[in-house]
Amino acid sequence: MASDLLERIKELIIDRRLPPGAPMPSERELTELLGTGRTCVREALKALQAMGIVDIRHGFGTYVGPMSMAPLTEGLAFRTVAGHYRGEDSLLQLLELREALETGLAGRLAGRLAEADLAELDALVARMEEEALDGAVRVETDRAFHAALCRGLDNPLLSEVLEAFWSAYRRVRADLPEQRSADPRASCARHREIVAAIRAGDSLRAQAAIRDHFCNIRSHLRLTYRFAR
């Protein structure tokens, strides 16, 4: 009954084409529309608020929520972290999902990024090269590069899904052995190749560059989980 009520309220939002921020019917109106008690309606609205579907503003009413991907992102990150500490290769699984997404988007971005966006990527690679001189590229710089790459598609959903990887990685990072054999200059070169391929408008080259970049990370994680077992 409770789940049915949630679905009916969600259907109401869809049927009325209510956008985020739009006012919802009052509790009294909902009880009449749905043929149920006010307590049931309140509990359903609380559950929907936890999902980001509605926003309850005490003293003002209930509104359609932002419908953010945050609950999914947090759930995916938590699943990954919990699995990692149980000895599962959950971070590797999430990395492979991220690789598939970024490989696909790289092909679509080839030849389509504005020069200003390419200049931002160039600047981030230059920063990586400076950091490499000190021994390692900072995770934050690598993250900024991939975030800038994803912005080129103007797809907030994609950016939020990819954020789950970084959130999970940040939480388990201290538990991962350092890549002592990795050459930070090679990482810089791989990122430079990604930008060059996209600037040249070569989709296949861009996809190959992304796969090459992830191959190194994937190999490191596979070794990590192999020795952990």
Rank of each mutant, 00 (worst) to 15 (best):
M1K: 11
S3Y: 05
L5V: 14
L6F: 06
I9V: 12
I9Y: 02
E11G: 14
I14V: 13
I14N: 05
I14R: 12
D15G: 05
R16C: 04
R17S: 13
L18K: 07
P19R: 10
A22F: 01
P23C: 01
P25I: 07
E27H: 11
R28N: 15
R28Y: 15
L30N: 03
T31S: 15
L34W: 01
L34C: 05
G35H: 06
R38C: 00
L45H: 02
K46R: 14
K46C: 07
K46P: 03
A47Q: 05
A47H: 00
L48C: 00
G52E: 02
I53R: 03
I53K: 01
V54G: 02
I56P: 05
I56C: 00
G61Q: 07
T62I: 13
Y63I: 08
Y63T: 03
P66K: 13
M67P: 01
M67D: 15
M69F: 09
A70V: 15
A70P: 03
P71K: 15
L72I: 13
E74D: 15
A77Q: 02
T80H: 00
A82L: 08
G87M: 02
G87L: 05
S90Y: 03
S90D: 11
L97K: 00
L97V: 09
L97N: 08
E99D: 11
A100I: 04
G104W: 07
G107V: 08
R108N: 06
L109M: 03
D117Y: 04
L121I: 13
A123W: 08
A123Q: 10
R127K: 12
M128V: 00
E130D: 09
L133E: 15
D134L: 13
G135Y: 04
R138N: 06
T141I: 11
T141Q: 10
D142L: 14
A144R: 15
A147E: 14
A147C: 04
A148W: 00
C150W: 00
C150L: 14
C150G: 06
L153K: 04
D154P: 02
N155Y: 10
N155P: 09
V161E: 01
L162Q: 09
E163P: 01
F165V: 01
R170S: 10
R170G: 07
R170W: 05
A174H: 10
P177C: 03
E178A: 15
R180H: 06
R180N: 11
D183C: 09
R185L: 08
A186G: 09
A186R: 14
A186C: 11
V195S: 03
A197L: 10
S203Q: 14
S203F: 09
L204H: 15
L204P: 02
Q207A: 01
Q207D: 01
A209K: 05
I210G: 00
F214L: 08
C215N: 10
N216D: 13
R222M: 13
L223V: 03
T224F: 13
T224L: 10
R226M: 14
R229T: 12
